[in-house]
Simulated assay, not measured.
Amino acid sequence: MPGADRFWSDFAALDWQVELGADESIGDIPVNRYDLPAEKTREIKTAKTAAPVPAPSLLADVDPVVVARAAAQAASDLDGLAAAMAAYEHCELKKGARNFVFCDGNPNARVMIVGEAPGRDEDLQGRPFVGRAGQLLDRMLAAIDMARDHPDTEHAVYITNVLPWRPPQNRTPDKAEIAMLLPFLERHVALADPYVLVLMGNTPCQAVLGRTGITRLRGNWTEAMSKPLLPMFHPAYLLRQPAAKREAWADLLSLKAKLREL
């Protein structure tokens, strides 16, 4: 039946767009808001005039890193830091995200896990690591008797990301985005004050260590932000490369052994 063929063709196209991250229809013509300049002239039409009126430039000549550092340092607790970060206006990712994703787990935990950025599921729910990768992370932690919701702080974990807003189509964050949000992460670590940091994937390694190459970095303890630090594969990578789970298991055992020493 021709009508049935057309239906399934349209359904497949829609499913493909959802996989790319398109989860809302708001117009007939797509607009890439990330390509719009910050000081784009807005055409404001009223009953009296149709002349274009330039939008006021509130963010011109401002160093976003300096603004972030001042806002982060002014926060005296985690609630204040979350509020300051949510109010930060210099990251374009904020304009396209559904939700601000700050943290999950127990802020008094000995282990703080730092990931990259929210994905589609995290953006929808407003919590980090809740999609397929997050479910795998929960199973990994359970294997060493740890969990984000464990009632005992000795076995609990605290989870955050370098970026609190989802990049479009889950692309890798660029260096400018990482740099402007790094002061918030540094303050986050200082306020939570974990015993150990775990960096999952290349983006947090780039942010905290200034290096990438997770296959070389993983499993090697180092120190940053005055904390013992262990780079590990991101669970999303393990979903694509199941053979790497052997190294991930070794890293989990290394983490467990380190916690016994502290």
Rank of each mutant, 00 (worst) to 15 (best):
V62K: 13
T41W: 06
L36V: 15
K95A: 14
P37D: 04
A207N: 08
I159T: 05
P194C: 13
W249M: 09
R6E: 08
A75I: 07
T172S: 13
N99S: 15
Y158M: 04
V162M: 13
A86M: 10
S25W: 09
A13H: 04
L78G: 05
D28S: 12
P194K: 15
E177A: 14
R240C: 03
K245I: 05
M146C: 02
M112Y: 04
M225Q: 06
L137D: 01
F233V: 09
L58W: 10
N220E: 12
P54A: 14
G105I: 07
W249A: 15
A133V: 06
L252E: 03
V157G: 02
P168G: 09
L14F: 08
R218W: 01
A86E: 15
E19L: 13
P235H: 07
V66D: 09
L229Q: 04
K94W: 03
D138F: 01
D123I: 09
E43V: 14
G27P: 00
S226M: 13
P107N: 12
K227M: 12
Q73G: 06
H155K: 13
T46E: 02
E24L: 11
R42L: 13
I144A: 08
A250P: 00
L141M: 11
L252G: 05
L238F: 05
I113F: 10
Y88L: 08
A133Q: 07
A84L: 02
L230D: 08
P54V: 06
P164R: 10
A71N: 11
L141Q: 02
Q135V: 04
P37R: 07
D152K: 03
L217S: 11
K256S: 13
T212N: 11
A22N: 12
Q17S: 07
A55R: 15
R120S: 09
P194S: 13
L262G: 14
S25M: 05
